[in-house]
């Protein structure tokens, strides 16, 4: 299988404070990787860095995406290469409808100008796939959305923009079990229709992985991956907790 994302020796700082310490990760086309870790372990730094958030500085190492080193690219340039970040806390854009937002994003990414009518048809198809009410098309982006609605809108955006790699930053956070199931199902549906998409699923809890089967699981502790394995690693974590690995990290350091 061909390699899509290759991260080597990644060091990242925010406000001159180092958060990630020499991280390595390989993701192949079509794979689902789960990245697990406690709050404050550097997961969000990792996802924001991948997408090019200007506050996060890569001080060492390399992010290679589909053959291009993207360290210095702007977020929109990364998006054009096929990266997508599903936000943990999606932002609201009052006055801009979901349909208009996605049409402009689609145009910026793909360079083609679909007529509003054709675009709406396409949008409705994707909404139907994800069982999202058409009424969302005319609502303002994330404005007054519930937590679950915001998360599902992120998945809809992914489905519309068709990235090569979707980084989903805690798509389960703040959701009750029903909403979580809905979100997980929509990710699965999209993945089933688009088997070539790679997914980096960042999560705190194992419960998301009851629904989405990862090919690989990585555990984040203190700004680095301390353990990688198959789906069974998530279950082990569930049983033993993170302490088991935190202790291991201490041993590593010694």
């Amino acid at each position: 299988m061909s390699e899509l994302l290759k991260i080597s020796n990644l060091h990242v700082e925010i406000d001159s404070k180092q958060i990630l310490h020499g991280l390595n990760l390989h993701v192949n086309v079509g794979e689902i990787h789960a990245v697990m870790g406690r709050n404050g372990s550097g997961k969000s730094t990792f996802s924001n860095t991948l997408m090019g958030h200007p506050a996060y500085k890569v001080s060492q190492g390399q992010i290679n995406f589909n053959g291009t080193v993207i360290n210095n690219l702007k977020p929109n340039e990364r998006a054009k290469l096929g990266l997508f970040l599903g936000f943990q806390y999606p932002l609201s854009i009052p006055g801009v409808t979901v349909a208009n937002f996605l049409r402009q994003a689609n145009k910026a990414l793909k360079g083609n100008s679909v007529s509003p009518k054709d675009f709406r048809k396409l949008l409705y198809e994707k909404m139907d796939d994800l069982e999202i009410d058409h009424a969302f098309a005319t609502r303002y982006v994330n404005d007054g959305f519930s937590g679950g609605e915001k998360k599902r809108m992120e998945i809809l955006q992914m489905a519309m923009l068709e990235p090569k790699l979707a980084i989903l930053d805690e798509p389960d956070s703040g959701l009750d079990i029903d909403s979580l199931k809905l979100v997980a199902e929509s990710i699965n549906k999209y993945k089933k229709k688009n088997p070539q998409v790679s997914i980096l699923l960042i999560t705190h809890y194992q419960r998301m992985l009851d629904y989405i089967k990862p090919d690989k699981v990585h555990v984040f502790v203190d700004g680095n991956i301390v353990e990688s394995g198959g789906a069974e690693l998530a279950l082990e974590l569930e049983k033993k907790g993170y302490d088991w690995l935190t202790d291991k990290e201490v041993i590593f350091k010694q």
Binding site: M51, K74, P75, R78, A79, K80, A105, L109, L161
Partner: peptide
Amino acid sequence: FYLMSRGL
């Protein structure tokens, strides 16, 4: 950042 991550 949110909007730019969508390609704008």
